Simulated assay, not measured.
Amino acid sequence: MYSILLVEDEELERKFLRHLVENCGRPVRVAGEAANGKEAVELAEMLNPDIVLMDIRMPGMDGLEATARIKAKNPAVEVIIITAHGRFSYSQQAIKNKVSDYLLKPVQPEVLAEALDRVITGLEAQPPGVERFLATAPALNAAASDLVKAIRYCDAGTARQSVNRLVDGFLSETGHPDREQLAAFAFEMLVTAGQGLLAAGAGEVAVSSQQNDLAREIKNISSLPGLVAWAEKVYRVHISWVQEHNATGDRAVIRRVQEYMRRHYSRGVTLEEAAGYVHLSPAYLSRLFKQKTGSSFVEHLTALRLEGAKELLIASDQTIDQIATTVGFKNNSYFTAVFKKREGVTPSEFRARGQADGSRA
């Protein structure tokens, strides 16, 4: 007997689904009901169901996000998506690979029965060693989490490393995987990559459109090299989408970084610190900063320090040493060298010229 978790925010529709499940004539039972995505995630962790019937449109956490979180905890669970719009699909090939299904509202009894038959067949045929390898391997959970972050922040280097760790962990669990095991693992990786798009602000339609072609290609994976090549394509496609659609968001991020630098330049703010402030990897922030401003992070930081120094040279009676320390330079010699290179005069000459101009005014 297979357990089912029903997830539907409309009470009447949830009761209707229970009725369909209880009268479908399949070896299934309703283990629990959830009225929203948050409840679904919590109940799935408690009940550990074999199957989840998931409405895609719910307030708060929608069905797509709930699905991603549930499968992150339990990759073996089969999720059947229910939608009134017919817009969500990882592709027909994903269904054929015995990993999921989707149904259109109003759900017809015979259609639900057919979907359950496909899912149950997949559960029965699930090869040992694969069904819960992500859930039982903390190192792989960490690699999956890193892949999500790498896609969200367009960090191709980290994404590649995460994919390699996932593949290595998969091989350590399975030894010599067959085609079904390769397909099951590939879909789990695709779901994980989709979480990266969701974290970057993509909607369900965007995730679906990016993943349909990739899911169709799963049937062609017959070897480890084929899996690795496909996995590399997965993260590149997902990162490309984020880069193309986050131009406005990127500009806002750079403005936040620049403001943070203005507030903290005097104490020696670092690229790593600024990256942490906006939740980006240092490597990605460095590239993005140069792309959006035309100058490097260090060049911009130096310019801020020199502007602050010029103000103090004119408006204060601090010594050159004191000013150098105040704006974040470690010693007077380096400060003087940088100042002269940028301004064409030494700090002392700049101060004298500014005071002379002030006296004439």
Score class of each variant (00 low, 15 high):
residue 294 G to F: 06
residue 145 S to V: 09
residue 308 G to I: 00
residue 356 A to W: 11
residue 123 L to N: 03
residue 315 A to R: 09
residue 226 G to R: 07
residue 210 Q to N: 12
residue 60 G to D: 03
residue 146 D to R: 15
residue 142 A to Q: 14
residue 233 K to D: 06
residue 36 N to K: 00
residue 5 L to S: 04
residue 300 H to M: 10
residue 138 P to R: 06
residue 71 K to R: 15
residue 175 G to R: 03
residue 55 D to L: 06
residue 25 G to I: 00
residue 355 Q to D: 05
residue 192 T to C: 13
residue 159 A to E: 02
residue 320 I to V: 14
residue 272 E to D: 08
residue 30 V to P: 01
residue 169 G to N: 14
residue 325 T to F: 15
residue 45 E to S: 11
residue 284 Y to L: 15
residue 238 H to N: 15
residue 230 W to P: 04
residue 1 M to D: 00
residue 78 E to G: 00
residue 48 N to E: 12
residue 275 A to E: 04
residue 353 R to Y: 11
residue 33 E to K: 01
residue 199 A to F: 01
residue 4 I to T: 00
residue 45 E to F: 06
residue 34 A to W: 01
residue 358 G to D: 07
residue 332 N to R: 15
residue 284 Y to I: 15
residue 156 A to R: 10
residue 128 P to I: 13
residue 24 C to N: 09
residue 256 R to H: 12
residue 278 V to E: 08
residue 308 G to A: 01
residue 307 E to I: 08
residue 314 I to M: 09
residue 275 A to I: 12
residue 181 Q to P: 02
residue 207 V to L: 14
residue 90 Y to R: 03
residue 1 M to H: 05
residue 279 H to G: 11
residue 23 N to Y: 04
residue 308 G to R: 04
residue 148 V to N: 02
residue 173 E to F: 09
residue 203 G to A: 08
residue 80 I to W: 02
residue 71 K to P: 02
residue 246 N to G: 11
residue 95 I to M: 12
residue 274 A to G: 07
residue 254 I to L: 09
residue 47 L to Y: 00
residue 167 V to A: 08
residue 291 Q to T: 11
residue 98 K to I: 01
residue 180 E to H: 09
residue 130 V to C: 10
residue 357 D to R: 15
residue 348 S to K: 12
residue 178 D to G: 10
residue 311 E to L: 05
residue 36 N to F: 03
residue 266 S to N: 12
residue 189 M to R: 06
residue 88 F to Y: 12
residue 330 K to R: 10
residue 146 D to K: 13
residue 103 L to P: 00
residue 222 S to M: 10
residue 197 L to T: 06
residue 162 S to R: 04
residue 249 G to F: 03
residue 310 K to S: 06
residue 44 A to K: 04
residue 208 S to I: 06
residue 114 E to K: 15
residue 329 F to E: 05
residue 184 A to N: 13
residue 287 R to A: 13
residue 206 A to Y: 08
residue 248 T to C: 10
residue 84 A to E: 07
residue 3 S to N: 05
residue 18 R to L: 09
residue 295 S to K: 15
residue 293 T to G: 03
residue 23 N to T: 11
residue 90 Y to M: 07
residue 206 A to F: 04
residue 342 R to A: 15
residue 57 R to T: 08
residue 329 F to T: 06
residue 25 G to S: 02
residue 293 T to Y: 02
residue 201 G to P: 07
residue 272 E to M: 05
residue 96 K to L: 13
residue 131 E to P: 03
